[in-house]
Computed example of a mutant assay.
Amino acid sequence: MPSEFGAILKDWRKTRRFSQLDLSLEAEMSARHLSFLESGRSNPSRAMVLRLSDALQLPRSAANQALNAAGFAPVYPSLSDDAPELAPVNQAIATMIDHHDPFPGYAIDRHWNVVNSNRGAEMIMALASSGGPANLIDILINCAGLDLIENWDEVAVLSLSRLRTEILELGGDDHLSTLAGRLASHERVKNVDMGSVNLNQAVIPTIFRVGETRLSLFSVIAQFGSVLDIRAGETTIELMFPMDEETNRFFKR
């Protein structure tokens, strides 16, 4: 009978679309040993759990779950946002987005909630938000009925693709799936002509209309890959840069 660890291992292998042979080669182990681990005939060492977690590119929370199922303590902490150990990370995030001002910069958590932002981002979000906690997908959906985002269809389709990729990488996430479902079911998204979305562009801009001014921005996304804390490691920093001189002058004013 498969052990709890064996079941987790098999589920993630299928999620990543690996055969047993594929995974055994990636983890540099025998396919026979892998089969024994999945069936529960063998128990993994701590080092083996970590090796398989790396080979499967497990999210840190899933790696902790696999370790726990195999009888080992988790290796990735999940600290509160105000934990002293995270002060340097929080300061680094604040420094990055503050130094990016006057251009928009913000940090979002795993579920696309804005957890920090600079003045440029707050100005854009104030035009788009319907009130309440700022979530980028909620803001995007709210903008569908406004004239704020000129290329809303393109931005929505690309955001949906990014959401679905993140859900796949995480092996599923109910909250993200709900957000993706809301966006996918929007009438404008359902009616998008996919042939009209040019995915061959080097940079996909977000084009805002503020009065008579047309603002064209593209995003650079960063994460703290070396931070072991689960939530801090999942925080994404998005910095928006102007694509033309008109946009550059607008924000500098």
Rank of each mutant, 00 (worst) to 15 (best):
S196H: 05
G40T: 05
S24T: 09
A69F: 12
N200K: 15
M96I: 08
S117C: 02
L56Q: 05
A92D: 05
S80R: 14
D98L: 03
A87E: 13
V49G: 09
I8L: 15
T206A: 08
S61L: 08
I97Q: 04
E85Q: 15
R164S: 07
V115N: 10
F251V: 05
E150D: 13
A92N: 05
R41N: 12
L215W: 09
L140H: 07
A156F: 06
P59F: 11
E4K: 10
M1S: 14
H186E: 15
D109T: 09
L67G: 04
D147W: 03
A144R: 11
N43H: 05
I207P: 07
V227P: 05
D229E: 07
R214E: 02
P84A: 07
M240P: 00
L160V: 00
N142A: 15
G120E: 04
Y76F: 15
S161M: 11
S30Q: 07
H111T: 09
N118R: 02
A202T: 14
A156L: 10
S226K: 13
A180S: 09
V227G: 09
S19Y: 10
S216R: 14
N64I: 11
R164D: 15
A232Q: 12
R32I: 11
V114S: 03
S53E: 12
S161C: 07
I97L: 12
L170E: 10
F250W: 12
I221D: 04
V155R: 07
N200L: 13
T165Y: 06
A134E: 09
L163K: 05
V197D: 04
V89F: 13
D244F: 06
S216V: 14
V189P: 13
E85F: 13
E122I: 02
T206M: 15
R13E: 02
R253F: 02
L199N: 12
L56G: 03
G211K: 06
M194G: 00
I97V: 08
S80H: 04
L58K: 08
S45M: 04
N151K: 08
H111K: 15
N135H: 06
N191P: 00
T15Q: 08
D54S: 15
Q57G: 00
L163D: 03
I108F: 00
R13M: 10
N118P: 02
L183W: 06
V49E: 14
A107M: 02
E238W: 05
S196K: 11
R16T: 06
S80G: 14
L183R: 02
L127M: 11
S226I: 12
L146P: 01
A31G: 09
R16G: 04
R209L: 10
A202C: 07
I221N: 06
W112H: 01
D229Y: 12
L176F: 05
S3R: 04
V210A: 07
N151M: 12
E238P: 01
P88E: 02
V114W: 00
H99W: 01
F36A: 06
P44R: 02
G132P: 04
S80E: 13
G145C: 06
